[in-house]
Amino acid sequence: MLREKSRKIKTPYYLIMPPQVLIWVVVIFPLLWAIYISFHDWNPTISPQRTFVGIGNYLNVLRDARFLSALGRMFYYSGVGVTIQLVLGTAIALAIVEYIRSPRWRTTVLVLFLLPMMMAEAVAAQMWTLLITDTGTINNILVWLGFSPVGWRAKELALTTIMIVDIWQWTALPLLIAYAARISIPDGLYESARLDGASKWLILRKITLPYMRVPLAIAFLLRFMDSYKFLDKVFIMTYGGPGTATELPTFYLYQTAFSYFKVGYGAAMSWIFGIIAVIAMFFFWRLAKRMS
């Protein structure tokens, strides 16, 4: 009879109401408002007048060469950067398991390697800016050793420099995931493979990597998602420059909406960029699902 009582409790809508209200007020409602605004031309610094332009803003965004090249940069920055993070992180994780035997050393090394991941993107960017300005530490060391200084923030190199900082900070995440996946593979598998005389290379290809495929796909997704989401590093290290050499879509969006105050245009761009981002995510999600 008492069991009946527990079953009779109604679905507690009141438990999900407050969170849903918060999300609706702060996220969904403003987003809907953004749709409305995106059909208008509105620059609040010039006049409060909003002129209706239909889907004009959307068409202009899709023809905006600056937006499209920013999108191209994003695929280079996120695609190449995240791939390197994944490969490097996996390699380091496997090396830790293979070559460090004492558990205490393993934990120490792991905690040290995870440090960059725990700090703010903004802090990491500041720390690296000190190192890579023209008279920064790395160039100072290069000059001191007799090499010529490198223009880390020059046009050709700037985006790659930011990518290196991203690799520095975020290789830790695939590393952590790969490490966790590797130590969860039962030792017995390796024992029997060794007894069968399998080479280390074969063991890596036939046991270790297949086992780690799903976690690594998740790591790739998480990283890809975060690397196109954030603009902190670009904002602090180069502010999009020199010229537009490091302008990623998120940063261009920031410029449009908060420096040029083209609010309607910015809203249209948010939607287009958001949709592209979500499509890219679903594409990778499908890919990851098929792989596993």
Binding site: Y13, I16, Q20, I23, W24, V26, V27, I28, F29, P30, L31, W33, A34, I37, M225, Y228, K229, F230, L231, T250, L253, Y254, A257, F258, V263, G266, A267, S270, W271, F273, G274, A277, V278, M281
Partner: peptide, 27 residues
């Protein structure tokens, strides 16, 4: 309540924050 709720949560995670910030700023 189910799918709608789950989707809300997912959107927040995948959309870049800067895309939200323009309307939130004006809110």
């Amino acid at each position: 309540t189910n799918e709608g709720a789950q989707f809300n949560l997912l959107t927040v995670r995948m959309f870049p924050p800067i895309a939200f910030l323009l309307p939130i700023f004006w809110l």
